[in-house]
Amino acid sequence: MEIIDVIELDINGRLRKVSIKKSWTLLYVLREVFNLTGSKCGCSTGDCGACKIILDGEAVNSCLILARNAVGKKILTIEGLSDGINIHPIQQAFIDCGAVQCGYCTPGMIMSAKALLDKNPNPSEADVRKSIDDNLCRCTGYVKIVEAILLSAKRMGGIRGV
């Protein structure tokens, strides 16, 4: 029998206690325990970026992180971007640019974009492409996704003249 731990996680600004098995990933806890299903399980090996979240300011694949290793860290999921009424400017730019396609990769792309823009509000196209380098999209050539991230940077006060 696997040992159960009780941990507390800071998810989207709210402290939440949860009983976990030591082997549970953060992705599993987010989706299956807290029903935060925006992060997707695409590969379980950290290769696709569909499960991307922001952990202490860094975009990370939640399928590779044990939930117990996220204790004491700030976890931001796609659900934490909106204020309950208004969506985040990055989310709106993805809609406006038609960068959502099937939508499976979109939350991970948006979280990668958010982590980038938090650190670099004025990214170049090369910066944007590098920030989403480990996010796979099977629907597009990434053009609209890059356009959406650059547009959101402009709308958020970064890039001028895009």
Rank of each mutant, 00 (worst) to 15 (best):
P89N: 09
T77Q: 03
E125C: 11
V100Y: 01
N61W: 06
G42S: 09
I53Y: 05
V100D: 01
V162Y: 14
N86L: 07
G42D: 06
T77H: 04
I110S: 02
L15K: 14
M1I: 08
I75H: 04
K73H: 10
I54W: 02
V33N: 07
D83S: 09
D5L: 13
L27I: 05
L36D: 05
I149W: 04
L26D: 05
N61L: 02
G72Q: 06
L81C: 03
Q91A: 04
R155C: 04
G103Q: 01
R160E: 15
K130M: 14
L66E: 05
K154R: 14
E147R: 11
D10L: 14
A59K: 05
P121L: 04
N69S: 15
V143F: 10
I54L: 12
I149N: 07
K130D: 15
A99H: 00
I20H: 02
K119V: 06
G49K: 07
N135S: 11
C41T: 06
A50D: 02
Q91M: 03
A67F: 04
A67T: 06
S82W: 05
K114G: 04
R16K: 15
N122S: 12
T37C: 13
D134E: 12
T37Q: 07
A148M: 01
I85R: 14
L15Q: 15
V6M: 08
V143T: 14
I95R: 12
T37A: 10
K119G: 09
C139Q: 06
I65G: 01
G98M: 07
Y104M: 03
E125R: 15
C97L: 11
N12G: 11
L27C: 07
V33W: 05
C43K: 02
T106Y: 00
I159A: 10
R155Q: 09
L27F: 01
V162Q: 11
C41W: 03
Q101T: 06
D56A: 09
S19A: 14
E58H: 06
K154V: 05
E2H: 10
V6K: 10
P121K: 09
G161Q: 13
G57L: 13
D96A: 09
C105I: 00
V143C: 08
N86S: 13
V6R: 12
A148I: 03
S124P: 11
R138I: 12
L66H: 06
P107N: 07
C137M: 07
V146K: 02
T77C: 08
D118E: 15
V18W: 02
V146F: 03
K74P: 02
R138A: 11
N61G: 07
K144Y: 03
G80Y: 01
S39D: 04
S152K: 05
I95T: 13
D47Q: 15
E2L: 10
I145A: 01
I53T: 09
V100L: 14
V18I: 14
V71Y: 01
D56S: 12
L76A: 05
L117N: 02
V162H: 09
I132R: 00
A113K: 00
C43M: 12
I78L: 09
I132F: 00
G80T: 08
N69A: 13
N35D: 15
K52Q: 13
C105Y: 01
S44W: 09
G157W: 11
F34E: 11
I159F: 08
L150S: 08
